[in-house]
Every structure is written in structure tokens, then in C-alpha cells.
Amino acid sequence: MAIRSKRYAEARLEASSNLELYWWVFMRISGVVLVFLLIGHMWMNAVLTDLNSINYDYVAKRLSQTTWKVYDWLILALALLHGGNGLRYVLDDWVRNPARRFWTKVVVYSLLAFLFFLGSLSLFNHDFGVN
């Protein structure tokens, strides 16, 4: 196909990328998966057990098992990605000044990365003292 764009703005409009499609699909799938993960989480911690009986020992015992490590890590990763991408949509729609939009995104993404790092670290590297 011949190149028809004459200006940068036109080239951007014709640029081929499926990235936004993949994000759109991810939002739908991760949304559905999160609903079931969170219902499961609530069911196990608020219905099957008495919410008031949950203490450090209970959490430490659960989180020293690989299954629950993976389960909770999935909630962490999907929630941060799903919420973070939703926040990106909001910032793209509402922050008009390009420079301010860029720096807001830098702060938000850094915060998300920090939360992800902290969550993963405590899930996989913390010694809960349970054998």
C-alpha cells in the first residue's frame, strides 16, 4: 500500500497497532475473572469462617500455602492491571494538558508498580513462621 500520510497527525491516524484492542479484551476477561476470584475470597473469609476469628495466625497459615499465594497474587495482579488501565482511560479522557497528563500517568504508574512490588514481596518472600 502506498504511503498517503503527509503530516504526523495523519500518520498517527493510519498507524497500525492492535494494542488498544488487546487492552479492551483484557478489561472484559479480567473483569469477569476478578468477580469470581473476589466472590471466592469473600466466601472463604466471611461466610465459611467467622470474620471476627481472623487473626495473624489464620492469615499466616493460609499464605504459607502455594495455592493461596497464587490465588491472592492473581487478585493483586489483575486488580492492579484492570484498575490501572481503567485509570489510564479516565486520565486520557479528563486531563487536557498533555504535559500534566504525562506526569500524572508517571505518578500513577509508579504507585501501581510500587503496590505490585510490595504485594508480591510480602506474598512470596515473607517468612510467615509456619512450617
Binding site: R12, L13, E14, S16, E20, L21, W23, Y89, D92
Partner: peptide, 15 residues
């Protein structure tokens, strides 16, 4: 047409 429509400035911006 999908090149323009599927880009970051295309249909996926519709809310």
C-alpha cells in the same frame, strides 16, 4: 480502514 479505526485514537476511545 482498521488501521485508523483500531489505533489509540480510534473506536476504542468510545465510552
Amino acid at each position: 480502514r482498521f488501521k485508523a479505526l483500531g489505533s489509540a485514537s480510534g473506536v476504542w476511545r468510545c465510552r
